[in-house]
Amino acid sequence: MRARLAHVELANPVLTASGCAAFGRELSQFFDVSRLGAVVTKSVTLAPRAGRPTPRVAETPSGMLNSVGLQGPGVEAFLRRDLPWLTAHGVPVVVSIAGSSVAEYAELARRVSAESGVAAVEVNLSCPNVEDRGRRFASDAGAASDVVSAVRTHCRFDVPVFAKLSADVTDVVPIAKACVDAGAEGLSMINTILGMAVDVDTMRPSLAGGTGGLSGPAVRPVAVRCIWQVYAALPGVPIIGMGGVATGRDALELILAGACVVSVGTAIFHDPYACIRILRELEELLEQRGVERLSDAIGLAHRALPRHRTEENHL
């Protein structure tokens, strides 16, 4: 069950998803966090952020919408208080970073990667670029490439960089390629999908911000599709798969599509033991199918089909 993020070896392939377990303390009251493959932190910003107005969360069929707005204490508090706690508990740490400009991402990469205990950096590209009329970095291959290049330049050489991609684009593959060409050692996908709900009782949007990110089981088929397409185009690039993983079967589906590890997010809100349960279920499923090593299952669905089938376009 050992897994790898580029050259970083993990004890197992189940991680937390950014934003769903904060910095790990909340989960530690339920189990030893060192049992996780890694903790992916909530996105760290340069300055403290209060986030968006409430209500910020709305339940939807098979998922939830959130519009938290990257609330957090800022990088100084994270490095002083949260990162030492995580490293003291013996869990690999993948630090998610978020900025509003290329310069902010670069500075975050420099400061975060200089610390011991950081296994990798995940670049949250689903942030508005204040220098480009608020358009999200993840929506444009050039903008995403600029961020990743700056992060890779300022990141410590032995800390791998993973670019987190959005499915809210016409074609995710060119953006994935642009990030890899810019120096990303791996990719994370998918981030939440933009959605909206209206409360028919109040006759107003359910979220104060109007729109929000949709997550949960409803988005899993989209995640599988994106992972499948990117793995087919970039088979040697490690992928952190996420999007609606609630069971071991869900995790195995993403791995068969091409993910080397999976991040668990929304499921944690109603089952704080979700990561440990999913790890156990995944191991049992692999054993039942005669798969001796996790690595043998990565992308196996591609190899199980004739080559021409993997290249067909959706009709």
Rank of each mutant, 00 (worst) to 15 (best):
M64I: 09
S206R: 13
I298R: 04
R156D: 05
T310W: 02
G183E: 08
A138F: 03
T202A: 15
F78S: 08
G236M: 00
A251T: 08
R133L: 12
E115N: 02
R280E: 15
P61N: 07
G69L: 05
G99F: 10
A6G: 11
V102F: 09
V180F: 01
M203F: 09
R4C: 13
V230R: 05
T202G: 12
P48M: 07
M242T: 14
G63Q: 06
R220P: 01
R277C: 01
R309M: 15
A141P: 05
S100F: 14
V118E: 04
L234M: 10
S18P: 03
F137M: 08
H270A: 13
L125R: 07
E311K: 15
I190K: 06
A257D: 09
E292H: 14
A109Y: 04
F23C: 13
W85G: 12
G212Y: 10
L79I: 05
T54A: 15
M242S: 13
L86A: 07
L282I: 10
D271R: 14
L36I: 11
T247A: 08
S67P: 01
V91G: 08
V180T: 10
V40G: 00
V118S: 09
R2G: 05
E76W: 00
V264P: 02
P205I: 11
G210R: 06
A3N: 06
R25N: 07
A119G: 03
S101R: 12
V291S: 06
N12P: 07
A223S: 15
A3Y: 05
G290F: 10
Q288L: 14
L234P: 09
F269E: 01
P235M: 04
A267E: 13
D140Q: 08
K42L: 03
L194V: 14
H314I: 14
F78T: 08
N313F: 10
G63Y: 03
E115D: 00
S28N: 12
T266H: 14
V123E: 02
V14W: 07
L70K: 03
A176E: 11
I190S: 03
V44H: 02
T60Q: 11
R133P: 00
L252P: 05
P13G: 03
S116L: 04
C275A: 13
L36G: 12
V172H: 05
D271H: 12
G51P: 08
V172K: 07
V151N: 08
T192G: 12
R111Y: 01
L165T: 03
H308R: 14
G72Q: 05
H270E: 13
M242C: 13
R49D: 04
H302V: 10
R220W: 01
D140F: 01
V147C: 09
A138N: 05
A176N: 09
G290V: 11
G248L: 11
V147P: 07
G63A: 03
T87C: 05
V75N: 06
L285E: 15
G243M: 11
F137G: 08
A301G: 15
L46S: 13
A120R: 01
A17Y: 03
P84W: 09
F78C: 04
A138T: 04
I298P: 06
N12W: 06
G244H: 09
S67N: 12
F269C: 00
R25G: 12
A246H: 14
M203V: 14
M64P: 00
H270F: 14
V75H: 02
V161P: 06
F78W: 08
G37Q: 06
P13C: 08
G236A: 13
